[in-house]
């Protein structure tokens, strides 16, 4: 230990769980919770049916005809579309990040624990995967199996695996250098038990951080894919799709474009703030223990 500050002699020390979390995490967390709540509510209630088109009331301004945020060029209620879009965003994010975390975390721990040449092999494989961004992967998948929400989720998820492997491996290496690892070996614990009982719980914080950062990336990727026409089908509400469709009216009714763009930006910022804040709290390399 190299801290020159002396600790209290006995009793509970204010370390470990006493680290401060800045206000930005709460803002980020608040945004994330808001998006989640909106998405959940959209299952039961939206002001209008998001699929209902009313060409007589197309491109209405905010507040006109009872449409809170107005309507798009097909006369669909923008507020309802945004709510239903939040659902898609959450769904795609959860599945994509879930794939990445479930595959990437064990691989990251494995890469930290296996002998050098095996881990070299794994990490080079990771480097190659990193060369394929989510968008490119999704385009490839779409070319093979056709576009759609499942293809985008899979592509985004697979593309996010390498960053999980890297982050988890780095964290696991820090954990493995701690004295409680040889202590567990001396106790008679086998490698798998050590990975499960010591390494995983101690890198879980990092996994959560990486998940929220990846989530932000997933939201962007999904929006991008939908925008390009490879993501959500026309029958699914999606922020990216809204953005693409609003392009036609960008010159005359820019507000229609602003709403989905703002929603995407807000969600991405929310997850990033949450991720960054949690990183300050969890990252063992930043811990000043």
């Amino acid at each position: 230990m190299t801290t020159s500050l002396e600790k209290a002699p006995t009793g509970p020390a204010p370390t470990h769980d006493g680290r401060r979390i800045g206000p930005l995490v709460y803002i980020g967390g608040g945004i994330v919770v808001l998006v989640a709540i909106v998405g959940v509510i959209s299952f039961f209630w939206t002001p209008y049916d998001p699929g209902f088109t009313d060409t007589s009331l197309a491109k209405a301004g905010p507040g006109v005809g009872g449409h809170l945020l107005g309507t798009d060029r097909l006369g669909r209620d923008i507020a309802s579309l945004l709510m239903a879009g939040a659902r898609t965003t959450l769904y795609v994010g959860i599945v994509a990040v879930g794939i990445a975390a479930l595959v990437g975390t064990p691989l990251g721990i494995l890469a930290a624990m296996v002998p050098r040449r095996w881990s070299e092999f794994l990490m080079r494989g990771t480097d190659i995967m990193l060369a394929f961004p989510a968008l490119l992967l999704a385009l490839m998948f779409a070319a093979i199996w056709g576009g759609g929400i499942t293809t985008s989720m899979l592509a985004i998820g697979i593309a996010s695996i390498p960053s999980f492997i890297r982050v988890v491996r780095a964290g696991a290496l820090v954990v493995l250098a701690q004295d409680y690892i040889p202590a567990a070996r001396v106790a008679g614990r086998r490698p798998f038990a050590i990975a499960w009982t010591h390494v995983l719980p101690n890198v879980l914080g990092l996994v959560i951080v990486q998940a929220s950062v990846s989530y932000a990336i997933a939201i962007l990727a999904e929006a991008g894919l939908s925008y390009l026409g490879f993501g959500a089908g026309l029958t699914t509400a999606s922020w990216g799709l809204m953005l693409q469709e609003s392009q036609v009216t960008l010159g005359t009714d820019p507000l229609i474009t602003v709403w989905p763009a703002a929603a995407i930006a807000l969600a991405v910022v929310g997850f990033n703030l949450l991720g960054d804040g949690l990183r300050d709290r969890f990252d063992p390399r930043l811990a000043g223990r």
Binding site: S4, L5, E6, K7, A8, P9
Partner: peptide, 19 residues
């Protein structure tokens, strides 16, 4: 003094290096 006795803190206060 033992650790926690305040000897390092005193020293840092003199050096103007207290956190």
């Amino acid at each position: 003094g033992a650790s926690g006795s305040g000897k390092s803190l005193t020293c840092m206060a003199i050096a103007g290096l207290l956190p």
